[in-house]
Design a protein around this nucleic acid. Structure first.
Length: 262
DNA sequence: ATGGTCGTGCTACGA
């Protein structure tokens, strides 16, 4: 049975409850992974999601910051969370589907403004978080697994609107890209979005500060779908739903989709 | 080199 999965940094699940429902009704993915819910788990508006047919949820939350949730039409088994770099943040949760596939939903730290851990603690925490992910995947190699989320790094030159201009901008610096590559390598993760769309500029985030985001198109691909090699060849039909970024009172991220024939 | 815009929750902080 094929199933479709989407990942979306929602930037407040409470403020954008209506947009989540619109996406669920319009695209009807079997599983929707959200990041930056900015809500305790017991304040996530689950009733509306239940009404849309998403009767299962596995989530971690905190007041005002971070937060990750997996909404599903299919039953989910909560298989835990990790707190890499001991930040005490709700940035990861994992769940298992009835077909045995494990889904990891991540919100990697943004990393602050200055790409220098000596002057910016947040940048060091971001690198340490990625190192924690790497070490975990090395110690416990994932199998039949999908990893999605806002990884806050655009690794390829064509994942940003201007590679040279962004080399010293947090999200595209060589040290971040190297850390992400190590994390990906440690789990043998396949970049499903780029397996399906190998060529051309592709973005999933456009800053709120850009006055005309669509025309200016100064985007970055910060949101990712990865899978382990034992299921990567079952993936297809990846896409970024750019139109969602143009909805009323939008998130600054667009959802990324992939389908798996499993 | 700087500022631009959001969301949360209280006037600052994180993205």
């Amino acid at each position: 049975m094929p199933f479709t999965l989407a990942t979306w940094n929602i930037n407040s699940v409470r403020l954008r409850e209506g947009l989540v429902c619109k996406l669920l009704e319009q695209d009807a993915p079997d599983v929707l992974c959200l990041q930056e819910c900015k809500s305790p788990v017991d304040k996530i508006p689950v009733e509306a999601f239940h009404a849309a047919g998403y009767t299962h949820m596995v989530a971690r939350g905190q007041k005002g910051y971070n937060g990750v949730a997996i909404l599903s039409k299919l039953p989910l088994e909560d298989v835990g969370d990790k707190d890499f770099a001991a930040l005490g943040h709700a940035r990861h949760v994992a769940a298992r589907l009835p077909n045995g596939v494990t889904i990891h939903n991540f919100y990697v730290p943004a990393g602050g403004d200055k790409p220098d851990r000596e002057v910016n603690v947040k940048f060091g925490q971001k690198l340490d978080y990625l190192t924690g992910m790497r070490d975990w995947f090395h110690a416990e190699p994932p199998k039949k697994a999908i990893l999605v989320g806002d990884l806050n790094i655009a690794p390829r030159e064509d994942d940003v609107w201007d590679h040279k201009k962004l080399l010293r901008v947090v999200s595209h610096t060589p040290i971040e890209v190297a850390h992400l590559a190590e994390t990906q390598g440690a789990g043998n993760w396949v970049d499903i979005t780029r397996q399906d769309i190998p060529e051309g500029n592709l973005y999933s985030w456009w800053s709120y500060r850009s006055p005309d985001w669509d025309a200016a198109d100064k985007g970055r691909r910060l949101d990712h779908v990865w899978a382990t090699p034992d299921i990567s060849n079952a993936a297809h039909s990846s896409r970024v739903s750019r139109a969602v970024r143009g909805w009323e009172q939008p998130s600054d991220h667009a959802p990324v989709f992939a389908t798996f024939d499993l």
